[in-house]
Design a protein around this nucleic acid. Structure first.
Length: 436
DNA sequence: TGAAATGTTGGGGCG
DNA sequence: ACGCCCCAACATTTC
């Protein structure tokens, strides 16, 4: 038996689960009885969608990979990092190593599903077992469904069943970090540099996550005040898997249900994207297809630069442009402003966020943009239109946030690009007419 | 996790 | 004392 196992290795393919701790796929690979080769692939098909060669996300991923490589080298192993189409990478891998099994964690985005299908087919042709695991969510795919077997499209009932199921099943964590001695012994290899994969090195000042008891307990009181560090900043870590969602849910259960709900929103939108992959490019509700978006390029540009003349909108866009992050309360406002005040297609805004946000997550970004535009599931009704000045008075009354991101700010620093009352009436009329 | 318009109530000023 | 008006405060409706 032992001899048979020695004749081949297992590969653990990391994608958006860049950690060695509590990693489901890695755990099962390490327990497979075969030496485990740890693999990461820079996929040119993904990289070419990133227009900015100074992309901070790439720098973040690169740094995480270096950390992982450093860590596994303590076990006499190495991370293997390739830069080519995954299918080609596996063809090469199969010719260089006696690969018997491949382990990985589920990735639910439409592109990832196509990619993984191709790799699965290739591996099957070569008689290699492909084992995939749920890791990035608590409940996936069809695990939280209505009693008639259809997916939920409203958050509240979904979250109720999600919580019921969580309480009956508990949270299962797998200590992959305790079995790293089963990694394949090999000399430490260097990663390709950022330049070698076509990117420029850039300071990756990704915000530190704050999952202190203090912050989580107070989350519901402070999360709407953009001048305060009242949010946990876990988005980017969930995106790339540098924190396990199971660790966060355990804390949430003990400390704050409002914060737990935010984690459930993430899974809600992932579930929606799984069942309705067409929402990546289309309105969830097709009755909104007839909205005549104005799509004025000049106005879009003012929005992007943070020069609308509405202080809270502009502060948010400048925070995004400068740091790759924007406070969530302000994200809702700027998204609503683009769709309703300017009548610009939510897809334009979504694409801009996708380019700029370090914590960009297709399912959440799409779900929340469609929420703001009113075209999505469980979305804000079309007649709910934020007043940017009222939002400022409510959530940044001392103008602290605004002054942080708009240095030249003073009352009337910039003439509003359009009148709120006018834009509100125009949005109501446009939506109403399109829906009739 | 809306805002504005419209409706209702009740206290107080005033003749 | 009483009716009338004003208006703030709150509630409801509408978009």
């Amino acid at each position: 038996m032992e001899a048979a196992l020695e004749t081949g290795i297992a590969v653990c393919w990391l994608r958006r689960d860049l950690r060695l701790e509590d990693n489901t796929g890695l755990y099962h690979a390490l327990k497979s009885g075969r030496p485990v080769l740890l693999l990461f692939i820079f996929d040119p098909e993904i990289l070419e969608t990133l227009p900015d060669k100074r992309d901070r996300r790439l720098a973040f991923i690169h740094r995480q990979l270096q950390k992982i490589n450093e860590e596994v080298s303590k076990y006499g192993s190495s991370l293997l990092v390739l830069h080519e189409l995954p299918k080609k990478a596996f063809i090469k891998l199969l010719s260089n190593y006696a690969v018997k099994e491949v382990f990985t964690n589920h990735d639910y985005e439409p592109y990832a599903r196509r990619r993984d299908k191709e790799v699965a087919d290739l591996l099957a042709e070569h008689g290699v077992n492909f084992h995939t695991f749920k890791d990035q969510v608590i409940f996936e795919k069809n695990e939280v469904m209505k009693s008639d077997g259809s997916p939920y499209t409203v958050f509240t009932p979904y979250s109720r069943i999600w919580k019921n199921r969580l309480h009956s099943e508990g949270v299962l964590s797998l200590p992959s970090e305790e079995h790293l001695e089963h990694l394949l012994k090999m000399p430490k290899m260097e990663l390709p540099s950022l330049e070698e994969i076509g990117f420029d090195p850039v300071e990756d000042h990704v915000p530190e996550a704050d999952i202190s008891e203090d912050l989580i307990r107070n989350y519901h009181n402070t999360r709407n005040l953009p001048a305060i560090s009242g949010t946990s900043m876990v988005g980017v870590h969930l995106r790339f898997g540098t924190i396990s969602v199971r660790q966060l849910v355990k804390k949430a259960l003990q400390l704050n249900e409002v914060w737990l709900n935010e984690l459930i929103w993430r899974e809600f939108f992932m579930m929606i994207l799984w069942h309705f992959p067409q929402v990546e490019h289309q309105n969830f509700r097709s009755k909104y297809d007839r909205i005549p978006w104005r799509n004025n390029e000049r106005e879009f540009d003012l929005w992007r630069k943070g020069e609308t003349g509405y202080p809270l909108v502009d502060a948010g866009m400048r925070q995004l442009n400068e740091t790759g992050w924007m406070h969530n309360r302000v994200r809702m406002l700027v998204a609503g402003f683009l769709c309703k005040h300017l009548l610009i297609d939510w897809r334009w805004g979504e694409a801009y966020f996708a380019e700029k946000l370090l914590d960009y997550e297709l399912a959440s970004n799409n779900g929340n943009w469609q929420w703001a535009a009113g075209t999505g599931c469980d979305a804000t009704p079309y007649f709910r239109i934020f007043n940017p000045d009222t939002q400022l008075k409510k959530f940044d009354p001392k103008l602290e946030y605004v002054k942080t991101w708009i240095p030249e700010f003073k009352a009337g620093y910039l003439e509003p690009m359009l009148d709120h009352q006018f834009a509100r009436a125009r949005a109501l009329e446009t939506y109403k007419k399109a829906l009739d």
